[in-house]
Amino acid sequence: MSTVAELASSNRGYSYAFLDEFAKRELRRRILKAIAIPGYQVPYASRELPIARGWGTGGLQVTLALVGPDDVVKVIDQGADDSVNAANLRRFIARMAGADTTTDASRATLIQSRHRIPEERLQEHQTLVLQVPDPEPLRSVEHDISKARLMHAEADYGLLWLSLYEQLVRYRRVTLGASYPCLVHHRYVMSPSPIPRWDVPKLHQSAHLTLLSAGREKRLYAVPPYTDVRPLEFADVPFRVEDQRGWMCYRTGLQNKFMNELPQTGGGAIYEISDTGFVEKVLRKVPDREAAGSTPAQAAVGATYYDDEGRFYIDGYLR
């Protein structure tokens, strides 16, 4: 016969993948609805995790609801696998779920990312989980999330279009940086999370599944595979990705991948590819000058979303 004290203190350890089965089931139910209604923000309860809010707890909850010991997990922050925050989340996931980890985007079954989508094209049955600080693309024109919700219900995006038009009149271009709003499956305007504009086209008609989750704001949404994702653009003023033409990665010598700009003492800057997992694969492929041939065979660098000349793989998507 168990006592209340025993029942209440039985849980000195933690559940598999940290979340208890109720929390996981709730997230799973919500994820299914998110996939069924692409780009629609599904409200969820959002449990507290032992990581501070705003540090990826939304993405982490989704990852924990999905992950199993058969998964290979990659975690990136700003494109980097080895940044402190990415390392912290990765060791938490690995520790709580016993999953394998990798830095290779094509080997991963589950990728949790903050602010980037890898350069290599993701494949069917890969899941990309994007951390979202603010899920509401209408925030700039409507602060109240309950009013914004009504605007989504009515597909009332007039104010957002107007704000883009005003930017155009004033600055001769749309002045949005990251988090560029997109129309998903011709119905919901969605914030793609603060990925650069360079990454936005990667969501369109993709082979993989993208789940986006905001833990603090308690909303999750999805872009299923093979779904239309169109950045808001005017017929005569097309959407433009970041202009990094002429920037060359000092580590790989490559161009036309998304770059970090590294200011140098005395002025000027050098550039490096932001996707460190990709750089790692490219550098391994380059034979070592001193010990050519001794490098063990590595996974080939996969097809990328943008080719070496900067052309996006779906013809005509970027005008």
Binding site: G13, Y14, Y16, G68, A97, G98
Partner: peptide
Amino acid sequence: MLGATATYSH
């Protein structure tokens, strides 16, 4: 701190 990985039951 966190204990070892919890068991992945059937």
